[in-house]
């Protein structure tokens, strides 16, 4: 029988992989991929809580998941537009070389 703990452990592992990707990649698209992995692990936890935790309205966890997916889509669209815009300005999306604000 699959219980809540199994889902939470998978979510924690997926979150730490996403954190590693988001912190260690040079490319802006790579960082965005790590953030999407972390959001996915959070969604997995929410769906797991909706499935297993005692609640008068258990469907709310899935509604939260739909909202998180919506916000993630908006965030991805803006972030990728920023990446294309930064590439036009600096000929690179390497975040180590984005230091125009430094003086």
């Amino acid at each position: 029988m699959i219980g809540l703990e199994h889902v939470l452990v998978v979510g924690a592992l997926l979150f730490s992989i996403g954190l590693y990707v988001a912190l260690s990649k040079r490319s802006a698209v790579g960082i965005l991929m790590g953030i999407e992995l972390m959001l996915n692990s959070v969604n997995l936890n929410l769906v797991g809580f909706a499935r297993f935790v005692e609640s008068p309205r258990p469907i709310d966890g899935q509604v939260f998941t739909v909202f998180v997916i919506t916000v993630a889509a908006a965030e991805a669209a803006v972030a990728l537009a920023l990446a294309v815009s930064v590439y036009r300005l600096r000929e690179s999306i390497d975040v180590d070389r984005l230091n125009i604000l430094k003086w």
Partner: peptide
């Protein structure tokens, strides 16, 4: 990588220790 692994270990520990009100 070490930091992310430690964070994952802490989250797993807390998730297994907490008494969730499961139906």
């Amino acid at each position: 990588g070490v930091l992310a692994g430690l964070l994952g270990a802490v989250i797993i520990f807390v998730a297994l220790k907490t008494d969730w009100a499961t139906a």
